[in-house]
Design a protein around this nucleic acid. Structure first.
Length: 853
DNA sequence: CGGTGGTATTTTTTT
DNA sequence: AATACCACCG
């Protein structure tokens, strides 16, 4: 028998792999080989003869699931682990075994969707239910608020959505939700209406994918039992990011056999805002008293310096399991902390650093990652990298599947799959414009509502309804219906990609973008890329099913159970019927479900060049070189202006710290931390951006501070801007006071001329204009009319403005501040002219008469 | 009806 | 800055 390569593991890792039954908590620090342990453990289970289909492995992202899958696959191949057939298990005989790999590996959401799909009738859903994306969800909330005549200021649609999400993450059904004040009472009223609307549409949202299976389990012991019997081993990655519903789901699955393995690191809990509760990992022993705990504290990724710095930050959190990573790779390069003048120069510094690392230290752009707090920060970085000719890839970010043109095409596909998909229908009924305008649609909607019938049926009926519509619109509707029906017909026989192509041609959608401007071009590219991605999926799925075709098509019991008496056997069969029923490699339905769940992932040529991503999407990845940008108070850590209790504030800062810890520990060899003195947000005027408190929290001897030099020109003497206190700019020294106390090493990383005239930068052109000589003029910035503007501070969102303060506006005259919106920099002003406007603070000046000294 | 231009809004992070 | 939304006009 093979040894499974256990000698490749350290003692703790081996202990985790070899503990084969009962609850197990693996506290796995960053870079301690956690995925490795999970993969080995799964392999070990397979080796012991556990059926691959009895293992459930849950990850947090699709990426992680893919990673795990390929690791397990690698081990299975390497050690020749073939699952033995268990003659006593009838289902096992029937299931396609793929290549002996666990088929139930995926994200919580994809697993929830898979189960829900198969027991849709129990959830009173059509089996081809639609999965709403963020946008659809928000639109629904918006419509609901309008229909219910809700005051937008009392309940913005976004707030409603987030409250509903919150409720679902905590396992609360509409009827269980209780209001406690005006706001939540409103939610309590709207949430049931929202859910009813989902039902009417035959749709679920992301939250439902978990909530509904859990609720069904809560109510039905039989179902619990079936699931518990089926999944004899449950493994969960990133357990620190699990929310209450997800945990309840795990409990339902595991309470029988108790073979629950959770792997996580409380220091990397960064999804509190999505309902994740760190206490679940902190207090795991409470629910599972006999849990075996394994700590993985040896880090195989980063240098000691990087670990020390990251640890220094995260160890300031009070609520954490005490642990400290160690590595055998002592020492390491010091972390470079660079202060740029503004965000554009910060970006140029990043681009330059990548070039320097390439030219002088032999790193490739592929080795580097740039990490930031918010997606919006990627734009400047992209510009700089492009200008310098550095290849890059954005990970996540403006998601491909979020683009309007992609969603349009998907809407056509959805409509082909399911004509009752009202959201899809409404989306494309007049795209491209075919003369079916708002008027017509409104009439149809009214009819549908009145008759309690689906919209498409109302549309159908309207074709002969001369009272409802004139002959023109009817003719157009007819044409549209013919179009869709034609597509539906070919949908039955064509592969999805071919169908998509037909859609593009027949609907004239592609012709919409035949213009020459960049906009049209990129849209066209996106649409074609979508088709390309479908083709790729089709290739993949035929390759995958090839091995198990005979088994897959031989299935009898699982296929048609809808009408059968819902006994346990039938339910079980339905739940665990093999994926690919027919010959068709990738059905339309499968594709649509997949797309709904695969957010974010880039399709097409990814992974080349420098990788740009948010700290959240960086979790689980590692790079030789990492540059963390925008380390400024208010940005990273992100600070919001909403009034909160001290306790709540501390909780939030703790999560930001963990996020910073995650970002820093992505680095193997070199870590750069950058921040800018001023930063432009929303294209408003630049604002002071004090360095992040995290920079102060890092021990000084881990850091090497660099500053951008005053002027790029050779003729100007090179002189550090600070800490000379040459210009006694009050706000400047205040902002940096703490930082200046450090024993800083002054150095110019941006070696003025050398890098500025280096080949790549030379072409930068526009980018270089960012290098105008620095003027210490931030505070004396003026409006065009020469009057000083209202200064506003980063520390409070209102920018130092207060309610009741008197202000003046160049056009609108005098007024008084009535309210300060939560959104930074915008205030409501009641003008003396009687006009009341919401206006950006930067256009206001204090009214001399009432202005405080 | 459909396209155009002007105005208001943007509430981190992602499945 | 970028985008979503809206009002107006051909």
């Amino acid at each position: 028998m093979t040894t499974l390569g256990l000698d490749e593991l350290n003692p703790s890792q081996r202990a985790a792999v070899e503990h084969l039954s009962g609850p197990l908590l693996i506290l796995a620090g960053a870079g301690s080989g956690k995925t490795r342990v999970i993969a080995y453990r799964m392999a070990a289970l397979l080796q012991r003869g556990v059926d691959a289909d009895r293992i459930l492995a849950v990850t947090f992202t699709n990426k992680a699931a893919g990673e795990l899958r390929s690791r397990v696959e690698g081990l299975v191949t390497r050690f020749g682990l073939l699952p033995p057939l268990d003659p006593s298990d009838a289902m096992a005989q029937v299931l396609p075994r793929g290549r002996g790999l666990p088929q139930w590996m995926g994200t919580f959401h994809s697993i929830g969707a898979r189960l829900l799909r198969r027991m849709a009738d129990r959830a009173e859903l059509p089996s081809d239910f639609v999965i709403l994306d963020d946008d659809d969800q928000l639109k629904l909330c918006k419509e609901l608020c309008q229909r219910e005549k809700i005051d937008e200021t009392a309940m913005p649609p976004r707030a409603l959505r987030s409250q509903i999400d919150r409720a679902k993450n905590h396992g609360l059904l509409p009827e269980q939700y209780r209001g406690r004040d005006y706001f939540t009472d409103l939610v309590a009223r709207l949430y049931p209406l929202y859910q009813a609307e989902l039902k009417r549409l035959g749709a679920v949202d992301f939250g439902d994918l978990l909530l509904l299976p859990v609720v069904l389990c809560d109510r039905d012991p039989e179902l619990r039992q079936i699931l518990g019997r089926r999944f004899v081993h449950v493994l969960v990655d990133e357990f620190q990011d699990v929310n209450p519903v997800q945990y309840q789901f795990l409990r339902h699955l595991s309470s029988g056999h108790r073979n629950l393995v959770v792997v996580g690191d409380d220091d990397q809990a960064i999804y509190g805002w999505r309902g994740a509760d760190v206490r679940l990992i902190l207090e795991f022993e409470h629910d599972w008293p006999d849990v075996h705990i394994v700590k993985l504290e040896e880090n195989y990724r980063s240098s000691q310096v990087i670990l020390d710095a990251a640890h220094a930050v995260v160890s300031l959190n009070s609520q954490r399991r005490d642990k400290r990573l160690y590595t055998q790779r002592a020492g390491g390069e010091r972390i470079i902390c660079h202060e740029a003048i503004d965000e554009r120069r910060e970006a140029l510094y990043v681009a330059n650093t990548v070039l320097l690392l390439q030219n002088e230290e032999g790193y490739f752009p592929d080795d580097c990652a740039v990490i930031y707090r918010t997606n919006a920060q990627s734009r400047v970085l992209e510009e700089a990298l492009r200008a310098c000719g550095v290849p890059y890839t954005i990970v996540g970010g403006a998601r491909f599947y979020d683009r309007a043109e992609v969603k349009d095409v998907l809407a056509y596909l959805r409509l082909c799959h399911n004509p009752a998909d009202e959201l899809a229908l409404r989306r494309i009924i007049n795209v491209p414009a075919r003369g079916i305008g708002d008027k017509t649609v409104t009439k149809l909607e009214a009819r549908a509502r009145l008759g309690g019938i689906p919209l498409w049926l109302a549309l159908h009926n309207a074709l002969d309804d001369e009272e409802l519509l004139g002959s023109g619109p009817r003719k157009k509707l007819r044409a549209f219906l013919d179009l869709i029906q034609g597509l539906r017909q070919i949908a039955a026989t064509l592969p999805v990609s071919k169908l998509a192509r037909e859609i593009l041609v027949r609907t004239g959608y592609l012709a919409l973008f035949d213009g020459k401007d960049a906009e049209d071009q990129s849209r066209q590219e996106n649409v074609l890329e979508l088709v390309g991605s479908i083709e790729e999926l089709e290739r993949e799925s035929t390759a995958q099913t090839a091995g198990s075709v005979e088994l897959g098509s031989a299935v009898g019991p699982g296929a048609e159970t809808d009408d059968a008496a819902p006994n346990a056997a039938a339910l079980e069969a339905a739940l665990f019927a093999p994926e690919n029923e027919g010959q068709k490699p990738l059905s339309l339905g499968e594709y649509l479900t997949r797309v709904a769940l695969v957010t974010g992932e880039e399709i097409g040529d990814s992974g080349r060049g420098v990788q740009l991503m948010t700290a959240h999407s960086a979790k689980g990845l590692e790079f030789k070189v990492v540059l963390v940008t925008g380390l400024e108070q208010g940005l990273f850590p992100s600070l919001r202006s909403t009034i909160e209790s001290e306790e709540e504030k501390e909780r939030r800062i703790a999560e930001e710290r963990r996020l910073c810890y995650v970002a820093m520990t992505r680095a193997r060899e070199r870590l750069f931390l950058t921040h800018a003195q001023t930063r432009r947000i929303f294209g408003m005027s630049p604002r002071m951006s004090p360095p992040s408190q995290f920079l102060r929290e890092i021990p000084a001897d881990c850091l090497e501070r660099t500053l951008e030099y005053d002027a790029p020109s050779r003729t100007t003497p090179r002189r550090p801007l600070r800490p000379t206190h040459a210009h006694d700019d009050a706000s400047d020294s205040r902002a940096h006071a703490d930082f200046d106390d450090l024993d800083l090493v002054q150095r110019a990383a941006l070696d003025g001329e050398a890098s500025l005239t280096s080949g790549a930068l030379a072409q930068a052109g526009a980018g270089l204009s960012a290098f105008r000589p620095f003027r210490s003029a931030r505070k004396t910035a003026t409006l065009d009319d020469g009057e000083p503007r209202v200064e506003y501070d980063l520390d409070d969102g209102a920018g130092g403005l207060r309610k009741g303060q008197r202000v003046r506006h160049p056009q609108l005259g005098r007024g008084r501040i009535e309210g300060i919106t939560a959104w930074q920099g915008t205030v409501t002003v009641q003008f003396e002219s009687g006009e009341r406007r919401t206006i950006k603070a930067q256009f206001l000046r204090p009214d001399a008469e009432y202005c405080e000294p």
